[in-house]
Amino acid sequence: MNTQTVLEVRNLHTHFFLRRGIVKAVDGVSFTLARGEVLGLVGESGCGKSVTALSIMRLLPRGGARTIQGQIWLDGTDILTHTPRQMRDVRGRKISMALQDPQTSLNPVFTIGAQLREALMRRLRAAQAAITQAAIAALRAVDIAAPEQRMGQYPHQMSGGMKQRVVGAIAISGHPDVLIADEPTTALDVTIQLQYLKLLKRLQQDTNMAILFITHDFGVVARMCDRVAVMYAGRIVECGKVTDVFAHPSHPYTKALIASVTKLKGSSGRLPTIEGQPPSLMDIPIGCRFAPRCPHAEQRCRDIYPPSFPINDTHTADCWQLAPS
C-alpha cells in the first residue's frame, strides 16, 4: 500500500454555540489518512463522528456550528482557508461523502438519472449522450440491475438498499481521492448491509480512493478497515492498525468496547453499553473524558488530559497508564 498522506486533520475543534451553552462536539481531533487506505472512526452515538465529517466537508448545519480551530490538509492545502468557491471545486472531486439515511438523501422530485448526470456533468465536459452513458455505467458499477430503466425512475420507486447504492454512485462519481462514509449501512437490514460493504470495498480497491469509514459497529471495522480511530466525547482516544488495536487495546475505553464485543460474539457486534454515561459535551471534564467511568482513574486523570502515548510506531492511545514511569 502506498503510504502517501492524502488527508490530515490536525487539532480540529468544532463547537455549537447555542443559547443554552457551548456544545464541544469536536474538541481536538487529529488523524491522517493515506492514499487508498480505509480508516475506521468508531464511537458511541453522539460522540462527534458526524460533526467531524461535516467539518471536513465544510457543510456544518446552520445554527451556531463553527470550526474554531485546527487544520484540514487535503492534498497539501489547508481547506479551512478555502473560499466557498474553492471549496465547491474540492467537493465531489477531491473529497466526497455518502450520507447515512438513503431514504432522505436523494431528491424526491428528480429522477435518479438526472441526479447522477448532474454530478457527472461537473467532471465530464462531454455531450449529453456521453454523460448519460457514464451515468448508466456508474449505476452498473454499484450493481444496479437494468440501469437504463432505473435512470428514469424516482427515488420512491426504489428499495432502501438500492437508494443507498445510488447515493454511493453519486458520491464517487467525481472520482474523489477521499470518501467519507457516515454510517452508510446503519439504516439497512443485515443482509443488505453485507452486500453494500462488499461493494464499497470492491469500489475502493478498484479506484484506490481513501475512505474515512464512520461506524459504531466494531464488527464492520474488522471487515472494512486498515486502521481504526476510537472516538470518545469529541476526541480520538486511540488509533492504530486494526489488528494491533484488536490484539492490544490500550485505552480503557477501547478495552471495554472490545471486551463487550467479543463477549457478545455471534450477536450484531454493536457497541454495547458500558457502565455509566458519556459526559455531556456541554460540560466536559477538564482531565480525561473517560475518567468518571474508568476503573483505573487516578488523580492526574481527573486533572490533566493525557497526551498521546505510542504503543508502537503506528499505534497510540491517550491514557496516563501508558506514561513511561
Partner: peptide, 30 residues
C-alpha cells in the same frame, strides 16, 4: 434546506444557486 438531499447536492459540488433555486425551490413549491 435542512434536508439530507440538499446536503448531498452540496457534496456533489453544485453551485449554491443551483442548490437553492433548483433542488431547494422545486421541493419548496410543492
Amino acid at each position: 434546506m435542512d434536508s439530507e438531499y440538499i446536503k448531498l447536492a452540496r457534496i456533489k459540488g453544485l453551485r449554491e444557486s443551483v442548490v437553492i433555486w433548483k433542488h431547494g425551490l422545486r421541493n419548496a413549491l410543492i
